[in-house]
Amino acid sequence: MSALAPAPAPAPILEARNIGKSYGPVRALHGVNATISAGEVLCVLGDNGAGKSTLIKILSGVHAHTEGELLAHGTPVTFASPRAALSLGITTVYQDLAVVPLMPVWRNFFLGAELRSGPFRQLDSRRMRHLTHTELAKMGIRLRDVDQPIGTLSGGERQSVAIARAVYFGASVVILDEPTAALGVKQSGVVLRYIAQARDRGLGVVFITHNPHHAYPVGDRFLLLEHGTSLGLFPKNELSLAEMTALMAGGAELEALAHELERPAPGPEA
């Protein structure tokens, strides 16, 4: 993976060079290279325990890396906290979405960053309602009423609101942690469409998933992880869906499994 030819245009927003992380003697991740550029979707694929969550934690500032280099806009950085990552515009949307189901959509949208006005520092609810409405519309999410509790939205819509929120609050990179994991086919489609929307609006998107069928349609590059290390970073034109699926499942392992599960041919062998 010395394919790290300097990006043609400006330096990528984030770049991992041979990055790794050890927790004490346990080496959770090593040898990972990846770039995240504006207007691109990087898909991180891997089975459970492949190192996806360790990579997210490094990129989002939860844990600092212990090997290799992390570059933000070309300069090496080490994130001491999620806040440090946030201040560089790197936002993570976790699986649980950080929403409060009983609260209205607009209150959720601005939670923790409420707009206030007037001598009593009151909530500027008119402006927040309006902004929520327009920001969601920009992502193609049309709600009849931003006052409805966010718990009444579908899973896909809630994901999309979380993405829209990240975008509005100045994210330049959005890290999505398995956004489609708990969703059905239709709802996953909704989320994939918003990922494409975010990309078209010039964001760098890191899309973590273990489903190649979700990754392939929206991804520009694919980082495949297995057993804590990288199987490679592939541009879309160098990898077919079938190849990716085979690589991900640990092609050899799957073949062996298929062999094992094969019904014995009737007749001679039995």
């Binding site: 976790y94 979405l97 950080a98 929403v99 409060v100 189901p101 609260m103 939670l111």
Partner: peptide, 9 residues
């Protein structure tokens, strides 16, 4: 309503 979410935000 959702303590962990509030904390995250």
């Amino acid at each position: 309503g959702a303590l962990p979410s509030a904390r995250q935000m």
